[in-house]
Design a protein around this nucleic acid. Structure first.
Ligand code: FES
Ligand code: FES
Lengths: 140, 140
DNA sequence: CCAATTCGTACTCTTTTGGTACTATATAAG
DNA sequence: CTTATATAGTACCAAAAGAGTACGAATTGG
């Protein structure tokens, strides 16, 4: 079954939690520990997800004592394509998107070589059009 | 990385092969063996994929001697959502699409429970809008 | 009956994913 | 300067999923 990974699932939950907190209280930084308690997710996993999100600049990280994470954009500016890219890596439905790389094993005999792009583009733009705030409808 | 399975990859290659053959020659039934030779894919795998496609009525199967498979629709009537459903199972980005089922483990503490639908719908309709014939552009 | 062909299931091997642990680095406070 | 508190990065192991294969049952035409 085609589905997204648990990491992405967690990422959305965590981002939603951060968005709520940042909206309600005027706290700038939140530590991984606090988020883990709030979401009831295991802390090491939360930490891992936050690191992934920080690498893609979806959230901001501050080290040291009194450090933590904070959203880098408004919730309606964060789209799912970006989040999925951060947690699952690049969105490419097949390995055969461009002709430069190795493609699949049967490339020489394949009748649809290099024809996956329409599908990929459709998928990516669909994901780009769903924002975090849309995922949070009815939350508050 | 979010990607579709090799089964789906094979399925598209196989369907493209069938579409070409059915267009060129006026053959009604084609056996798994012939398709395997034509696509250079291992026969057992081809057989497996064809069975999956037949179950979803994307192709037609005839048993017995002189039996085989044939397309059930025109190539532009076959969309990728259908093919992916046949080979990978239902398209649901998360287990938490409807509230009836068990959802994920943290359902009780989840702030976005039941909010995955927008994402799922976007994804599915994107896939429905890509047809097999679009994947075959430039083939013939 | 016999040959050709699909159907269904089950099994094994490999790859990917999920989760955890450990160490290094950075920063604020005393 | 030292210490406490955080994040950053890497590496590792177990569990799950996926890919491929094999085998026997069922169906049809000659
Ligand atoms: S599917 Fe990869 S080259 Fe055809
Ligand atoms: S993600 Fe499953 S209930 Fe929230």
């Amino acid at each position: 079954m085609i589905k997204l990974s648990k990491m992405t699932d967690y990422a959305v939950v965590i981002l939603a939690d951060m968005a709520e907190r940042q909206n309600a209280e005027k706290i700038e930084q939140t530590s991984a520990t606090v988020i883990a308690q709030s979401t009831k997710l295991p802390e090491p996993t939360v930490s891992k997800v936050l690191k992934l999100l920080a690498r893609q600049n979806i959230i901001n990280s501050t080290r040291g004592a009194a450090g933590g994470y904070s959203l880098n954009k408004a919730p309606d500016q964060i789209n799912m394509a970006h989040v999925i890219t951060a947690t699952d890596g690049p969105i490419a439905l097949t390995a055969c998107v461009d002709e430069s790389t190795e493609c699949c094993d049967r490339a020489q005999n394949c009748s649809i070589k290099g024809q996956w792009n329409p599908l990929n583009r459709a998928m990516i733009s669909a994901l780009e059009n769903v924002s975090l705030s849309e995922m949070m409808r009815g939350t508050r």
